[in-house]
Design a protein around this nucleic acid. Structure first.
Lengths: 227, 227
DNA sequence: CCGACAGAAATTGTCGACAAATATAAATTA
DNA sequence: TAATTTATATTTGTCGACAATTTCTGTCGG
């Protein structure tokens, strides 16, 4: 299993473990989007008390996977088109800035590391052309590396700790298997070049275009489906 | 008291109330930055059980006012220069985008409402020139209005629900009483004009400069203090 | 005197039960 | 029958106690 959250170490407490299980279950739609969450039922299913379940629910709420209302209960967030587009707008802002900061703050080792990863992605892409899964994972790894390279804890926590769980959820539930793999690969190359040149302004611009292109790609797909 | 969080309705459960009290206490430094939080002690102080205290702590963690480590405990986040600058970088990205979206999505009524507010701020500034407090509150109100005007729940929640508590905390603890009031007022006017013209690109650019200027102002102050 | 180790104290994590609030079902009335 | 009210049942919020882990304290050996 690839790392879902590169900032946190492995879970120790049982609430952490249940949180991770539920996170996967929600992201992959096993617990359906929009459904109500029954505390007694889930506590029984995971063999834990309601207290620790509520602890897990709090963490799920932190990454916006569920929503709670006082004296009413929790619901899994429902995946809407508007929500997806809003998410991409936010990503564009945050990851654009993270990319600018990465160009400024990444160490030389981090940069060569990132280049190596890109090279690897190019090879696997040649081999497994068509099956987009590896590119899918690779895309997330690429973005993670840049975000971490910003060396800005605020950005890192917001994007990796919160937004990206939602991103993965939408990708799963809408079956978005990165259809623009080769194009994305070229865009990734350009971005890394800009970071390599320490050109923060260009790096931010390219990253924003990269994400905006992804968003527009989705919008087109939606428009197509509506026919 | 002015509204700390315009998105949430008034607190109903006791955990909510304790959360709000602790939030104020932390923002204003009554519970010192960087200090460890003793669950038994605070539970006794607020006359509640540890369970509801922990519920309140979870909400404090959600807005990044405290940090928790498993089996160790919670600490109030400590205000460092680096943290402050990182926060402003993040604000620049998020509020810049929010401003762009506001230019696109704000209703005409919202715009005239915002204009009226600006006019009011100009008057109070004339009257109370020098005492920056009203401008301080006004500044936050201005930013809130634009963020809400983005009509993007993701942005609204991230900025208003999380970042701004930290912003207020830093303002309190570092005693930043908005020393650039008149200049900020002019910048606000320009931004509103751009929104009025539905020029999202310019609006984002101006907002980013506005926040970047504020950040640089802080950097200069710090450099001055270091002498 | 310093560091490693063992035991004691305190703190956090987890549990089951009760109180308060909400949602559901039944009953009454127009 | 439809709407409103009442009663029931379920769910959430809160509490105090126990278990597991960490931190502190004091002792011993080098």
């Amino acid at each position: 299993m690839h790392l879902a959250n590169p900032t946190k170490q492995t879970a120790v407490t049982t609430a952490d473990k249940v949180f991770e299980q539920m996170q996967h279950a929600i992201v992959e739609g096993e617990i359906p989007s929009g459904s109500k969450i029954s505390e007694p039922e889930l506590a029984k299913r995971y063999q834990i008390s309601r207290s620790t379940l509520r602890e897990a629910l709090n963490r799920l709420e932190k990454c916006h996977l569920i929503e709670r209302k006082a004296n009413v209960g929790s619901r899994v967030v429902d995946c809407t088109i508007e929500g997806l587009l809003e998410l991409y707008i936010t990503r564009e802002a945050l990851e654009g800035m993270a990319c600018r900061q990465a160009a400024k703050n990444m160490s030389d080792e981090e940069i060569v590391d990132m280049k190596a990863m890109l090279k690897l992605h190019g090879q696997t892409q040649e081999l497994k052309d068509g099956t987009a899964y590896y590119q899918e994972e690779g895309d997330l790894d690429f973005h993670y590396k840049i975000i971490l390279g910003s060396h800005n804890r605020q950005l890192i926590d917001l994007i990796c700790g919160q937004l990206y769980h939602l991103v993965r959820m939408y990708r799963c539930q809408f079956g978005m298997n990165s259809p623009r793999a080769s194009r994305a690969f070229n865009e990734h190359s350009q971005i890394i070049q800009a970071i390599c040149d320490r050109d923060g302004e260009l790096a931010e611009m390219l990253m924003r275009r990269h994400i905006a292109a992804s968003r527009k790609n989705i919008e087109n797909k939606i428009a197509q489906q509506a026919l």
